[in-house]
């Protein structure tokens, strides 16, 4: 079976789920303000921010010494060392910059499946992560893809940008066949900044997902992979002699549903999820799995926190 996220017993989907046309309700946004996105790596930012940067700068936190070269600011010379050793050393301090938080969501037609729809679920996750990033003065970028990379929303900073985020996600069409490799290639070309990249998809891509993930990894980002499946995909409620039509490419599979066939399907799904997980883990990516059955707020507040994406 696919890995199942933990789920508090008190949570009931009906009570916690926002309406389909509302990505985040204000009460939940207020809870999100207490969270921040955590990166396992330290990246150089663009502007001053609240995150420690790889650059040395002007904060109060000492970082290192280095030999003085001509042209250095004399204010950072350590005169005490000069007095003892008769050599000029320059004191370096840590720089605090902003963090690039990028969410890459799958809006191919296969995501428009299940109840609630995987696409809506993915948009809510994107909105939540973006909001957390905006609140913490991180640089938030949103990308969407189906068989190509759609127009992104990049360089957002500050909670005022949340309106644009919501509009962008709301207006995102869920259509087209998925081609993650092609989209990831375009993403790698366009997205040159380092930072956290959260990829939200079902990874039901007949052309394979491996190449796309390799493109993303090539950018040396801290990548999180979130695979979302509908409960109807995990435990299909199908019976009888059926003609199954793929919603993306209209490919047909004629099957006679039987217990052995269902068992075989579930075994295949489990093996597939394990394969995705294994691929990610071997390459230093964080793999997360969730079904849309898991209440959205629980996923953000508990599940992603436990997995280390949020704090």
């Amino acid at each position: 079976m696919p890995p199942t996220p933990t789920r508090p017993p008190s949570s009931t989907p009906a009570a916690r789920e926002p309406a389909d046309d509302v990505l985040l309700d204000p009460q939940f946004m207020h809870r999100l303000e207490q969270l921040e996105i955590v990166s396992r790596k330290i990246f150089a930012g663009k502007t001053k921010g609240e995150r420690r940067s790889t650059r040395k700068g002007e904060s109060v936190e000492f970082a290192d010494y280095r030999n003085y070269v001509v042209g250095d600011d004399l204010r950072f010379l350590d005169w005490n060392i000069y007095a003892r050793l008769d050599q000029l050393f320059l004191r370096l301090f840590l720089e605090e910059e902003d963090l690039n938080v990028t969410v890459l969501i799958d809006v191919s037609r296969s995501m428009d499946y299940g109840r609630p729809s995987k696409a809506v679920y993915a948009k809510r996750i994107a909105a939540a992560v973006a909001y957390i990033g905006l609140v913490n003065y991180d640089r938030v970028n949103l990308y969407a893809f189906n068989d190509r990379l759609l127009a992104p929303l990049t360089g957002l900073r500050g909670r005022r940008m949340m309106q644009r985020v919501v509009k962008y996600l709301t207006d995102l069409p869920v259509e087209g066949a998925g081609d993650f490799s092609s989209a990831a290639r375009q993403f790698a070309i366009r997205h040159t900044q380092k930072g956290i990249v959260l990829i939200v998809s079902d990874f039901f891509d007949k052309r394979g997902f491996e190449e796309g993930l390799r493109y993303v990894l090539g950018r040396r980002v801290d990548a999180y992979v979130l695979q979302i499946l509908a409960p109807q995909e995990v435990d299909p409620d199908l019976t009888g002699d059926l003609k199954l039509v793929d919603c993306e490419d209209s490919e047909v599979a004629e099957v006679t549903i039987s217990r052995p066939l269902l068992n075989r399907y579930k075994a295949n799904l489990e093996a597939y999820c394990k394969f995705v997980r294994g691929f990610c883990v071997q390459r230093g990516m964080n793999y997360l799995f969730a079904t849309t059955q898991v209440p959205f707020d629980q996923l953000i507040v508990n599940y992603l926190r436990r997995r280390g994406l949020l704090r």
Binding site: L238, L242, K243, L244, E248, A253, L261
Partner: peptide, 19 residues
């Protein structure tokens, strides 16, 4: 008997492997 009921699903990827 080959005339079957049509059902749209997200992907035939895994069914294809199963069947």
């Amino acid at each position: 008997k080959l005339r079957r009921q049509e059902r749209i699903i997200s992907s035939t990827l895994l069914w294809r492997r199963a069947v």
